[in-house]
Simulated scan of single mutants.
Amino acid sequence: MPAAAVKSKPLPTQSTAQRPVQLDLPYAPVTKRPLPAGRPREWYITHNRRLKAMRLAIALLDSGVHLPDQARDETIREVARLIGVHPPSGTTCRMVRALMRYGC
């Protein structure tokens, strides 16, 4: 096929980073299932912390925060308030940033 016959896509007029992104509120609550019995208490704490960090990371990405440097503790706690979860601890905030950093 000659190069002149190939048509390129038109470039978007505005990038995603410049457009305001709104959260689809309210988030639908996740159906809860019982956790497996017989594990040490620390396993349950870590498991729930990971689930919360994952929910927060997804909400941050939906709201337009794409870099871990943009996700300060205050920003993460504000998103937690918006989606209806308890304010995360400093450890959970670090986990959210780690997910954003290494999830790409």
Rank of each mutant, 00 (worst) to 15 (best):
P2C: 09
A4E: 15
A4N: 10
A5Y: 02
K7N: 13
K9Y: 05
K9N: 10
K9F: 06
P10L: 07
T13R: 15
T13H: 11
Q14S: 13
Q14A: 12
Q14T: 14
Q14N: 04
S15G: 06
T16G: 00
T16D: 07
T16H: 05
A17Y: 03
Q18G: 06
R19S: 13
R19K: 15
V21W: 03
V21Y: 00
Q22S: 09
Q22C: 09
Q22D: 03
L23Y: 01
L23A: 07
L23M: 08
L23R: 04
D24P: 00
L25I: 11
P26V: 05
P26D: 10
Y27C: 02
Y27N: 06
A28E: 15
P29K: 14
P29V: 05
P29G: 08
T31Y: 04
T31S: 11
T31D: 09
T31W: 02
K32E: 13
R33I: 09
R33Q: 13
P34H: 08
L35P: 02
L35K: 11
L35F: 04
P36G: 12
A37S: 14
G38N: 13
G38I: 07
R39A: 15
R39N: 09
P40L: 06
P40G: 05
R41V: 10
E42Q: 10
E42P: 01
W43R: 10
Y44C: 13
I45H: 08
I45N: 04
T46W: 02
H47L: 07
H47G: 01
H47T: 08
H47P: 01
R49K: 12
R49T: 12
L51Q: 12
K52Q: 15
K52Y: 07
K52M: 15
A53H: 11
M54V: 06
M54D: 10
L56M: 06
A57N: 03
I58Y: 09
L60N: 04
L60T: 04
L61H: 10
L61G: 04
L61E: 12
D62C: 12
S63P: 00
H66R: 15
H66V: 13
L67G: 01
P68V: 14
P68R: 11
D69Y: 05
R72S: 14
D73A: 11
D73I: 06
D73W: 00
E74P: 00
T75M: 09
R77T: 15
R77P: 05
E78P: 00
E78W: 01
V79D: 00
V79A: 08
A80M: 01
R81E: 12
R81N: 08
I83Q: 06
H86I: 08
H86A: 14
H86K: 10
P88H: 07
P88W: 07
S89A: 12
S89I: 05
S89F: 03
T91E: 14
T92R: 00
T92E: 11
C93A: 14
R94P: 00
R94T: 05
R94K: 10
M95V: 04
M95L: 15
R97W: 01
R97A: 03
R97Y: 06
A98H: 08
A98E: 11
A98M: 09
A98G: 02
L99E: 09
R101Q: 15
R101F: 06
R101N: 11
